[in-house]
Design a protein around this nucleic acid. Structure first.
Length: 802
RNA sequence: GGGCUGGUGGCGGAAUGGUAUACGCAGGGGACUUAAAAUCCCCGGGCUGAAAGGCCGUGUGGGUUCGAAUCCCACCCAGCCCACCA
């Protein structure tokens, strides 16, 4: 008979809640110490949870439950990343207030998450949109501001015309708004920034010590984009002025191959140096370039077009004349906005030179002479040629020698550039934490006194985005005095990027109700940093990089004793629809976890999601497969009817092996193979007429982190004791793990010819004799000379014959 | 174009130098049943053979090794990420 999952799961969820079974208490004595196991908190969308959410949550829940059984004190909290555009857009479209919509969504998310039986400490639940929380987001802003890590500046920024707000670089994907897909336009606006670039080098170096997926580390390295090279000054030939064009290159070894210089269309020196004859060309070209959207610039990647300015510069070492060109393949936002054109050894320069018939000078020869093709740039390292004093050097040596020469002449210097930009944190939207600043006509922009936090998000506003923050229209919000001179002033009306909210939330969980500090020092010390963090790979750069930055800053400012917030990180893979495609409403392949829980139970859903395949892989959903794990649970359930005070060494052995394997695999987060092992054990139970009670109860404890409801029910029914989680993680009986007889493969010249059942302790000679005695092996050895015999005890014996 | 990850039965996957395909799904056969469902047991890489067995087999081609899905080299394909970054 199948078990009644609805009744059992409801019963134990209520029991856990009544017992506060999972409350984390740092003051509690624990023999193993404290662990912080964290899920990336969800954005509570209107659609509710999808099956992807419980995948990561189950992985951490299994880990947390097992660690508790082992005697660790575990902090395992859940909360809500509750500010953000979707709720606000929904409110604009459908009416209502983003707060009400968000709270309703949170209620639904909480109900769903509780239905899965996760062992969260609900007393620590946080929500970033509540004033008790965002007070400290604002405090963080003030702290960074006070320490010159937050500042206001005018800069070219990304503007989304649909959402009517600026976006961080990280939120622009393929030139489009990450949220709504609208083409982003560049605007010159004054905005608030966090000085993340100050930490570029440390954020890069810190990656090395992290237990994170290589992929994620590579993406962060890529995003930080460190490149070491040389800045080179080219003197402009101009009687009137002493100006230089500064270029940046990572390949100073190609300096002798320069045949022109290219400036970005926005380069500040352009107006001065363009000759009269080329002035109109420049005006037209700039006009054209400005009209191109980011997307067009990307799509036209291969089309290198530009114009000649009529001006020339001196080569810094040879003094040779070098023409100065303009093209938008050079970006203002990287390096110096000017590059030296070396067509022979750079693909872009090559394309440009071909188009405008500029000289192509080969200065690097491939060490592999034949490799050099004349109809393409040679971009690898090599040996210098046609380079005067540098001839014969390798690229690596030449880089140093050229840099030395330039530094000697004061024509250049070694520099490091980063691709990462400062983090733009202000948004012209309503549903976010107000930036705690006050504008005074006399004193300029002033920080709000921390005593007056939180700056409450007002209700008397119209949410419709107009390009200005909706807060601009709020009267109550703006009746404020300057904190410095006391005169009437107005509040900053921008709100913060929601990534600021989520950049520190894991600290708040350690002390979620504190109204004096963002979290008490002792609480942070007790739990942080996070020992295990699990979430989707989509946060590879944004959230994870921002959180790291905030922790580095807080450490420098004396608030934390660690810089890296997440010691170990794992990404759960995407769960695809049954058709193997990414789940989406439009494809109609979305699986609703509520239906699985109601039809098969939470334990089945948990087990199935872990059984599908390795945690980090993308895996298609198969409802038929769900039935398979439910059958397994029913087998375990039914086995309780055949318990006996009997002895069965075979079953004891199967259980001991299961305990060992499940323990090891759970620690390695190989949940799929752990479950396969439990299934094997259940099959042994199913085939047995009587099952030793002791062995069965050990199995139930082993299964408990995976299927906690069923385990609790079986434990209380069979043992009469209260919670299976109070009884510790079972220890495998080592003596049962060793097999006295094993099947050893017998090979002749590497081909399997037989297997023999022998003791793994058996000596090589005896094993050989046993192997030779088997009929098939004898047949293959007949008439052959045995050159060598390889024996690996307990595994394989291989005869090498001729 | 660059980087990363991967390619194993009909399907999800297991095995990280030692019997390839554990476990599950789907399929076939049997037991129980008036019957069906449920449940339980057995069989499932290909070719060949009555069987025992033999040959082939982890994307392709080579290499290292007594022995390779696993390590090395080259290539093909797929997915993800980045991409005019000088």
């Amino acid at each position: 008979m199948p078990y009644n999952h609805q009744e059992i799961e409801k019963k134990w969820q209520a029991q856990w809640e009544a017992d506060s079974a999972f409350s984390a208490d740092a003051s509690k004595k624990s023999k193993k110490g404290n662990l912080y196991i964290l899920d990336m908190f969800p954005y509570p969308s209107g659609a509710g949870l999808h099956v992807g959410h419980p995948e990561g949550y189950t992985a951490t829940d299994i880990t947390a439950r097992k660690r508790r059984m082992e005697g660790f004190n575990v902090l395992h909290p859940m909360g809500w990343d509750a500010f953000g555009l979707p709720a606000e857009n929904y409110a604009i479209k459908m009416g209502g207030h983003p707060r009400d919509i968000t709270r309703k969504n949170i209620d639904n998310f909480r109900r769903q998450i509780k239905s899965f039986g996760f062992s969260y400490d609900w007393d620590r639940e946080i929500s970033t949109c509540e004033p008790e929380y965002y007070k400290w987001t604002q405090w963080l802003f003030l702290l960074l501001w006070k320490n010159d890590l937050a500042y206001r500046a005018k800069a070219p920024v990304n503007w989304c015309p649909t959402d009517n707000t600026v976006l961080a670089n990280e939120q622009v994907v393929d030139g489009k708004c990450e949220r709504c897909g609208t083409l982003v336009v560049q605007k010159e606006l004054e905005q608030w920034f966090f000085r993340i670039t100050k930490y570029a080098d440390r954020l890069l170096a810190g990656l090395d010590k992290l237990d994170w997926p290589e992929r994620i580390k590579a993406m962060q390295r890529n995003w930080i984009g460190k490149s070491e090279g040389v800045e080179i000054d080219f003197d402009i030939i101009d009687d009137k002025k002493e100006e230089v064009i500064r270029v940046f290159t990572t390949r100073p070894d190609t300096l002798m191959g320069v045949s022109y210089i290219v400036l970005a269309p926005e380069h500040p020196l352009l107006d001065e140096l363009v000759t009269e004859e080329h002035q109109m060309d420049l005006v037209n070209y700039r006009d054209q370039a400005r009209k191109k959207s980011e997307l067009e610039r990307t799509q036209l990647e291969k089309d290198k077009a530009g114009i000649f300015t009529g001006a020339y510069a001196h080569h810094p070492l040879t003094g040779e004349l070098v023409p100065i060109w303009v093209s938008d393949y050079v970006l203002t936002t990287y390096g110096t906005g000017a590059v030296m054109g070396v067509p022979a050894h750079d693909e872009r320069d090559y394309a440009f030179a071909k188009k405008y018939d500029l000289p192509i000078k080969w200065v690097i020869a491939s060490p592999d002479q034949d490799d050099r093709v004349a109809d393409a740039a040679y971009t690898d390292m090599g040996i210098l040629v046609n380079s005067g004093q540098f001839d014969g050097l390798t690229s690596t040596d030449a880089k140093q020698k050229v840099a030395d020469a330039l530094e000697g002449e004061e024509k250049g210097r070694r520099v490091t550039f980063y691709r990462i930009r400062d983090w733009l944190v202000s948004r012209q939207r309503y549903w976010g934490a107000p930036i705690p600043a006050i504008w005074c006509e006399d004193c300029g922009v002033q920080p709000v006194d921390p005593k007056n936090l939180p700056v409450i998000l007002p209700d008397d506003v119209d949410f419709k985005p107009t390009g200005q923050s909706p807060l601009v229209g709020s009267k109550s919000f703006h009746e404020v005095n300057c904190p410095k001179c006391g005169n009437a002033a107005r509040r900053e009306s921008d709100t913060m990027d929601t990534f600021v909210d989520s950049s520190w939330y894991f600290l708040r969980y350690t002390d979620p109700t504190n109204s004096e500090v963002f979290a008490d020092e002792a609480s942070i010390k007790a739990w942080c940093p996070v020992d295990l963090y699990v979430g989707g790979a989509e946060h590879a750069v944004l959230h994870l990089l921002y959180s790291r930055f905030v922790c580095y800053a807080l450490k420098d400012l004396g608030y934390l004793e660690f810089d890296e917030p997440f010691v170990a990180l794992r990404n759960q893979g995407l769960i695809l629809g049954p058709d193997g495609e990414k789940m989406s409403k439009s494809k109609g392949n979305v699986v609703n976890p509520d239906e699985i829980v109601s039809e098969y139970g939470a334990d089945t859903l948990r087990l199935y999601e872990m059984f599908m395949g390795p945690l980090e892989d993308a895996k298609p959903w198969d409802t038929k497969g769900v039935v398979g794990v439910r059958r397994f649970l029913d087998k375990v359930w039914m086995a309780r009817e055949r318990l006996a005070d009997s002895v069965d060494p075979a079953i004891d052995k199967a259980v001991a092996k299961c305990v060992k394997r499940v323990g090891d695999d759970t620690d390695a987060m190989k949940f799929n193979t752990a479950i396969a092992e439990m299934m094997k054990c259940a099959n042994v139970f199913a085939a047995a007429e009587a099952i030793p009670r002791e062995a069965y109860m050990t199995f139930v404890r082993t299964m408990a982190p995976y299927a906690p409801h069923l385990a609790e029910e079986l434990w209380s029914e069979v043992s009469g004791a209260k919670s299976v989680f109070d009884h510790g993680w079972p220890v495998a009986d080592e003596s049962l793990l060793k097999d006295s007889i094993v099947a050893v493969a017998v090979q002749v010249n590497g081909k399997l010819r037989a297997t023999i059942d022998i003791s793994p302790e058996l000596g090589a000679d005896e094993a050989r004799a046993r192997a030779e005695a088997t009929e098939n092996v004898a047949k293959h050895l007949e008439g052959k000379e045995v050159k060598k015999v390889v024996y690996v005890a307990g595994r394989v014996i291989n005869f090498i014959v001729v």
